[in-house]
Design a protein around this nucleic acid. Sequence first.
DNA 1: CTAATTGCAAAAGCTTTGCAGCGCA
DNA 2: TGCGCTGCAAAGCTTTTGCAATTAG
Lengths: 135, 135
Amino acid sequence: MSEENLELRKVGLKVTAPRLKILHILEESSGHHMSAEDVYRKLMESGEDVGIATVYRVLTQFEGAGLIARHNFDNGPAVYEVDRGDHHDHMVNVDNGVVIEFHSAEIEALQEKIAAENGVDIIGHNLVLYVKDRK
Amino acid sequence: MSEENLELRKVGLKVTAPRLKILHILEESSGHHMSAEDVYRKLMESGEDVGIATVYRVLTQFEGAGLIARHNFDNGPAVYEVDRGDHHDHMVNVDNGVVIEFHSAEIEALQEKIAAENGVDIIGHNLVLYVKDRK
DNA sequence: CTAATTGCAAAAGCTTTGCAGCGCA
DNA sequence: TGCGCTGCAAAGCTTTTGCAATTAG
């Protein structure tokens, strides 16, 4: 029984061909962020017979199960990446579309401090820096 | 000549009824964030005859002119607010939808530092904290 | 006068949903 | 076998666009 097989069982999802294929695509595209359309295109390229609706449904389930993380960069479609537990934020280079991941414990600490000052608890956050190459 | 009238001229936009009305709605709803649909609904309530397409076009123009700022909170439609030049980020209370604005010079400084470390310049950023009331 | 602006309706882009059939456990 | 899962097509929601008529400067 493969690892992906186990990952799916662990989160209570039936092990089906579409789910395995989609999870596999996301794992091998590690480093990139994939939109539902990107995943669907990859499936088509592999000659797989999976509907776009299934891609959306599976991505939503994976996200709910904590297997993947969803991000919304400004406009454009939502993108996903495998959630390795290492939280990070993103820098999007608007010149070439390259996405750099980063993490700042200091920023996170400041966020907590600000939330505390307002009497609330943070349950999630979204930080994206839009950048350009320095001339 | 009204102030709004001047604001429009200053950014090179013709002074038309739809633009004045939309700018007015945004200014009097200060504090809230308005989606295109929200603005359109207000126009309808006032018996104004403005198309939703015009609302979208005008909001886009206002944003380009720096009169207003656009935000994308997770899912849902884009929302706008008058840009008073005071940059700030947002905390969205997921329990009641309340949006709190905040600003942290420390966080901004850290962002600049991180960008510098990666050899890029920040041209914009997006920071939203999703929070809950503390129990 | 003339380019900018507008309303309408249609279309586009992304995502969700209804439904009947198929397949995992 | 039974419920979950799937593909397809249709619909939904937000936003954009083509076009002819209108209007600001």
